Amino acid sequence: MKKIQISDSAFQWLKAKYQAMDSMNAEAYRTFLSEDCELQFGNNPMVKCNNEIIGGLKHFWEAINGLDHSFLNILGNDNHIVAEALIDYTRKDNQVVPLPCVTIIERNDAGLASSIKIFIDTMPIFS
């Protein structure tokens, strides 16, 4: 990893959040989201509550066999985190497609994600 600007506790939170994502465990992932969390994933419409986010994740996970995040840089502060990552997506044919991604996460006073903006092009997964 090149650079980490957030505290160790915020970094541990971030790693645990992505571990839940990479294990495709929707209920574990939900524990990192505020009830009214907003999610913008690529050019898809904004999703505005954690139940809709979890439903969308489950739907997306049905289209792949797995995913694995590797952090490159973590910038910002404990409440405004910018995570640059390389994500290895395992397609249904078991081919691994590495994709660059940047995610901006805002955390509320309780330490939960209140806004997540994911900048990625997922087209190579499905082509």
Rank of each mutant, 00 (worst) to 15 (best):
S7G: 10
D8T: 15
D8N: 15
S9M: 08
S9N: 11
A10M: 10
F11G: 00
F11E: 02
Q12Y: 08
W13D: 08
K15T: 13
A16E: 06
Q19M: 12
Q19D: 15
A20N: 11
D22S: 00
D22Y: 09
S23I: 02
S23E: 14
S23P: 14
M24E: 07
N25G: 15
A26W: 05
A26M: 08
A28N: 10
A28C: 09
A28V: 06
Y29T: 01
R30A: 14
R30H: 13
T31L: 01
T31S: 14
F32R: 12
F32E: 06
L33Q: 10
L33Y: 05
S34D: 09
D36N: 15
D36K: 15
D36S: 15
D36R: 14
C37E: 06
C37V: 08
E38F: 00
E38L: 03
E38N: 13
E38K: 13
L39G: 01
L39S: 02
Q40Y: 12
Q40I: 02
Q40P: 00
Q40V: 07
Q40C: 03
Q40M: 02
F41L: 08
F41M: 04
F41I: 00
P45Y: 06
M46G: 09
M46R: 13
K48F: 03
C49G: 13
C49H: 09
N50M: 01
N51H: 13
N51C: 11
E52K: 14
E52V: 06
E52W: 04
I53G: 08
I54P: 10
G55I: 06
L57A: 11
K58Y: 07
H59M: 07
F60N: 13
E62W: 00
A63H: 00
A63P: 10
A63D: 04
I64F: 05
N65K: 09
N65I: 01
D68W: 11
H69E: 05
H69G: 09
S70G: 10
F71S: 12
N73G: 07
I74D: 03
I74N: 02
I74C: 07
L75V: 02
G76C: 03
N77R: 07
N77C: 12
D78A: 07
D78F: 01
N79H: 04
N79V: 07
N79A: 08
H80C: 04
H80Y: 05
H80L: 04
H80K: 14
I81R: 04
V82T: 10
A83D: 07
A83W: 01
A83E: 01
E84F: 13
E84D: 04
A85F: 06
L86H: 11
L86K: 15
Y89V: 02
T90E: 13
T90P: 00
K92E: 10
D93G: 00
N94F: 14
N94V: 03
N94L: 09
V96T: 12
P98G: 05
P98Q: 10
P98S: 10
L99P: 15
P100R: 15
P100D: 07
